[in-house]
């Protein structure tokens, strides 16, 4: 049996985000340095792993907890896990809006809208569009709002604008647009880094994790 203190001294990282944002894929990329699984299923609960990764000259051993992104698991696990974590990775599916024509049409007004509010008029505009991405996007924004409401200002937050690799041949949302769409700038008080990334290809994953470790040290 392991000593209690030896295991609890490891850094704890929690990975949050709405369902299908790519949280589990990020972890697989971290563990395997490549993506093995051709097909994924939604995470029904939480998965905690102790892993080691090599970043430059340093080897980091830490515990990472992947939590299902549906509302059920947001309510069940997010708050408690965030409270125990030394750092948080928040994953956004940046390709979510690519096929939502209605949203794209209104995007110009949208990104200039007021602070995030679930009842804001901009949301009503989206409801008129029947794209499935609309519901996903609204859920994603609610999840982000909830996540950031429980985050401790003192903890570093890495926001990965995931699935950057999927934007080829589609409307490319700029980093700035995504930040506005998700109201990420309202979180400037946090120790936050926002970066495009692809869990699938590994783009920016390790570099940005390195930032997180620097902040946690």
């Amino acid at each position: 049996m392991k000593n209690v203190f030896s295991s609890t001294s490891k850094k704890n990282v929690t990975i949050l985000g709405y369902k299908t944002a790519g949280k589990s894929t990020v972890i697989e990329q971290l563990i395997e340095n490549k993506i093995l699984r051709e097909r994924r299923e939604e995470t029904h609960g939480s998965k905690t792993r102790e892993i080691k990764i090599q970043l430059g000259d340093k080897e980091h051993e830490f515990r990472i907890t992947d939590i299902g992104g549906s509302e059920l698991y947001q309510n069940m696990f997010w708050k408690a896990d965030v409270a125990k974590s030394d750092g948080v990775i928040y994953v956004v599916d940046s390709s979510l809006l690519n096929e939502c024509k209605g949203l794209q049409k209104d995007l110009g007004n949208w990104v200039e809208s007021e602070e995030y509010c679930p009842n804001y008029q901009a949301d009503d505009k989206i409801i008129k569009c029947n794209c499935p991405e609309n519901e996903m996007f609204r859920g994603s924004r609610r999840a982000k709002a909830f996540a950031f409401s429980i985050l401790d200002l003192g903890k570093p937050i890495l926001v990965l604008l995931n699935k950057a690799d999927l934007q080829e041949n589609q409307r490319i949302y700029t980093e700035d647009e995504i930040i506005k769409l998700y109201k990420l700038k309202t979180m400037v008080a946090h120790n936050i880094k926002i970066t495009p990334a692809s869990a699938l290809t590994g783009e920016n994953i390790f570099e940005s994790i390195n930032w997180l470790f620097e902040q946690m040290e």
Partner: peptide
């Protein structure tokens, strides 16, 4: 889960929910 991770020292612990749709399938 905390007990298994912190006190027993396990490295791989999943909490999976039977109640969720497809929860059993996930298990």
């Amino acid at each position: 889960r905390s007990f298994l991770l912190d006190e027993i020292g396990l490295k791989h612990v999943d909490l999976l929910n039977y109640q969720d749709t497809n929860g059993l399938k996930s298990v």
